[in-house]
Design a protein around this nucleic acid. Structure first.
Length: 422
RNA sequence: GGAGAGGUGGCAGAGUGGUCGAUUGCGGUAGACUCGAAAUCUAUUGUAGGGAAACCUACCGGGGGUUCGAAUCCCUCCCUCUCCGCCA
């Protein structure tokens, strides 16, 4: 949630910021609600103060052993003005909050204007893009020949979008996850293994609820949700806490499967690995002092880029434009690897600075230089999601004889094997 | 799942209907003493909202209720602990 004070202090700034995202937000309504909220608060609180004073008087009389029935009767005979104002106030606050909770974060000044992915800016390029040889197969054919996965049986036991990894495929998946985690640990991230199901408050804290309920798998009976990313449980690790500035920044990495309904995206990337209901991802989550978050964002992004680099996959880093950023992000870099046969850029990481957007929802604070509590900034980035990495690896490192050359960094995780063969 | 006991400020721990936002201890901060430190002493030390301010309001796990008045009584949910049952 954005800072609600801005509604009062600078509604035009809000209007413009949301317009950059292509959103015509009901700013006038917000201003109206904020004003009526404040005037109702005055009414309600004045009534409460009067009542408190009268009750204190009753207490005093009773303690003195005097008769208080007149005083009590006087309080009782008061009108229900307060009750009425209270219910109006509650309704106003609810509408205000409902609107604010559904509105996205404001783009940072360094974010380019734009309406869609077409307007994203390439921040950097790395690696040389080579044309695939004529004999090259696409990743599905390579994987099938090596028996790395079994989509059919995945569909049988669960449905489309639930892959089964088999044999070397399963090991390769495990190797990627283990290597990612080791890299992050060595870079100072604390590895955590969080729950895969979280409660409503956690989902609300990161911004997945209420707006994106239709993208989540739910366990209705227990009011739990399957996580769409480790960002949710790990960010909420520090919900309702005041983090000691001496401990900052706090950096975590976590491997989890991710569960996404992908409602509304039927027909898009349905084949193979490009869009799945369940996939593995290692996520980095970073809690920062407010003034340090943009530096942290660069470091976090570089940490993710480093993995792709070490795998030898050409990539590009996009600075997302205002219209293409996710709901909670103030600034976001996407890292895309090149799939030479598919001839496509594939997004394998998204590194975002949420500023205090999530922190406000989740109650994550630290202390400023004056020792007073301030909202922390949260950041996160994939480091990395495996399926599309697998696509790029298979297409890039396939050999003419049908084998797969294992990138060097992964070999220690695969018993030192250099080539995977059927 | 059954029975019981609990959830109070950074921590520990009082408080069972009337100046309780809350005794006290520890911790934190500032000061005194000291060459300095320790010890000791003194003061101070929650969060959020409203208000130009004075100040007011709210918060004792969450929500609801009783009452002129609730940390304290009632209902409900959540969580923790102990015992029993079940079980990877």
């Amino acid at each position: 949630m954005i800072n609600p004070r801005l509604v009062r202090e600078n509604p035009e700034l809000l209007r413009k910021a949301w317009l950059r995202r292509g959103l015509e937000a009901p700013v006038d309504r917000l201003v109206e609600l904020d004003e009526s909220r404040r005037s109702l608060i005055s009414v309600v609180e004045a009534a409460k103060a009067a009542k408190n004073a009268a009750s204190a008087e009753v207490g005093k009389l009773k303690r003195e052993g005097k008769d208080a029935s007149d005083a009590i009767a006087a309080i009782k005979s008061r009108g229900d003005e307060q009750v009425e104002a209270e219910s109006k106030l509650a309704a106003t606050e609810k509408e205000l909050e409902d609107i604010l909770m559904g509105l996205p974060n404001l783009p940072h000044d360094s974010v380019p204007d734009g309406r869609s992915s077409e307007d994203n800016v390439v921040a950097r390029n790395w690696g040389e893009i080579k044309e695939a040889p004529a004999w090259a197969k696409d990743h599905l054919q390579v994987g099938e020949a090596l028996k790395l996965f079994d989509f059919k049986r995945g569909a049988k036991i669960s449905g489309a979008g639930f892959p089964v990894y088999t044999g070397w495929g399963a090991r390769l998946e495990r190797a990627l996850v283990a290597w990612f985690l080791d890299e992050h640990r060595e870079a100072g991230f604390l590895e955590v293994q969080p729950p895969l199901m979280v409660n409503r408050a956690s989902m609300t804290g990161t911004g997945n609820l209420p707006k994106f309920a239709d993208q989540l798998y739910t366990c209705q009976e227990d009011d739990l949700y399957l996580i769409p990313t480790a960002e949710v449980p790990v960010t909420n690790l520090h919900a309702d806490e005041i983090l000691d500035p001496k401990e900052m920044p706090i950096k975590y990495c976590a491997y989890t499967p991710c569960f996404r309904r992908e409602a509304g995206s039927y027909g898009k990337d349905t084949k193979g690995f490009l869009r799945l209901h369940q996939f593995d991802k290692v996520e980095m989550v970073w809690f920062s002092a407010p003034e340090a978050s943009y530096d942290a964002h660069e470091v976090l992004t570089a940490q993710a880029e480093n993995l792709v680099k070490k795998l030898g996959l050409p990539y590009r880093t996009l600075l997302l434009c205002s219209g293409d950023m996710g709901f909670g992000a103030a600034k976001c870099y996407d890292i895309e690897v090149w799939a030479p046969v598919e001839k496509k850029w594939l997004e394998v990481s998204s590194c975002s600075n949420f500023e205090d957007f999530q922190a406000r929802r989740a109650g994550i604070r630290t202390r400023g230089a004056d020792g007073k509590p301030v909202l922390a900034h949260t950041l996160n980035g994939s480091g990395l999601a495996t399926p599309r990495i697998l696509v790029a690896l298979l297409e890039t490192y396939q050999q003419e004889d049908g084998s797969f050359k294992v990138p060097e960094v992964l070999r220690p995780y695969l018993g030192g094997v250099e080539f995977l063969r059927a």
